[in-house]
């Protein structure tokens, strides 16, 4: 019989299976408890580390909750005006085609004020990755209705629920960009469970590899939560997301490259 193993016997460098990547800075995230932004930041950082992209990554952060994203990933950053990240990234990639260029945008940034920049960057097939966090609300400004707010969903500017006759319908931006010839890989994922986090990370890794192969725009939507804006606990918000967001924004790949055109380096 082996001796009972104490915690101190397990916590040794050789037994390490998971620690925060060094690409994340030591700064404490400013996000509310349970917010999916932090999780997406971390797996993005992990992909950058694992794919050896730290020296070539140039990120473009948006206006919205993730405006301060540049405080958290130890790479070069540009902070774009509201909605303009795809235009900013377009120029970066065209002028520095060997760099790994991506935008990280929320639903207000990408699907409302930045609709034109999003669609045209995707339509030109700019060789960039776009990460789109969709939590159906404007978090930073205090929970107002977003272009992605569900029908009937309450927000501070739709306090009786989104009345689609008066306020219009939620827009499914990922469905739209999937129809454009310039996009190469379009997928919708989430980060509320360990399995979903792993799938999203895989999607980000694929997008990074496709960019090296100059394949065109890779677009990853992450359906996420906003516990503060939705006025729920984090665990409740994830359950509400499964029950309400996923039926409207179903998870899964929307545009997957054919086997022959997606030759990536296996790691």
């Amino acid at each position: 019989m082996p001796q009972a193993t104490g915690i101190n016997d397990i916590i040794k460098p050789e037994n390490l299976v998971y620690k925060r990547t060094e690409v994340m800075t030591p700064n404490i995230l400013h996000y509310c408890p349970g917010c999916g932004h932090g999780t997406v930041h971390r797996i993005l950082a992990e992909v950058i580390e694992e794919e050896g992209l730290q020296t070539e990554a140039i990120g473009v952060s948006p206006v919205g909750c993730s405006v301060l994203l540049y405080n958290y990933l130890d790479i070069d950053w540009q902070e774009a005006a509201h909605g303009r990240a795809p235009a900013v990234a377009t120029a970066i990639k065209r002028l520095l085609p060997d760099k790994f260029v991506f935008t990280y945008q929320g639903d207000g940034d990408l699907a409302a004020i930045g609709t034109a920049e999003t669609i045209h960057a995707c339509n030109r097939g700019e060789n960039i990755m776009i990460i789109f966090i969709n939590n159906g609300i404007y978090g930073m400004t205090g929970g107002q209705m977003a272009p992605t707010t569900l029908p009937g969903m309450k927000s501070s500017t739709s306090p009786y629920g989104r009345d689609v006759k008066m306020m219009g319908n939620p827009v499914k931006m990922t469905d739209i960009v999937a129809t454009l010839p310039g996009t190469f890989y379009v997928t919708r994922q989430s980060v509320h469970t360990p399995a979903n986090v792993r799938k999203t990370k895989k999607a980000i890794r694929k997008a990074a590899q496709y960019q090296k192969l100059n394949k065109g725009t890779c677009f990853i939507e992450v359906v996420s939560n906003c516990p503060s804006g939705w006025k729920m606990t984090p665990v409740e918000s994830n359950r509400w997301m499964e029950e309400n967001m996923f039926p409207f924004y179903p998870l899964g790949d929307m545009k997957v490259p054919q086997e022959s055109e997606s030759q990536t380096t296996n790691k």
Binding site: I10, R20, M24, I28, Y31, G36
Partner: peptide, 20 residues
């Protein structure tokens, strides 16, 4: 069991996991 699920899903990246 050191599955790392907690660390993978933690939004603030505060969990380190060991396994043997």
């Amino acid at each position: 069991i050191g599955c790392a699920n907690c660390a993978v899903v933690c939004p603030d990246g505060v969990i380190t996991v060991y396994r043997t």
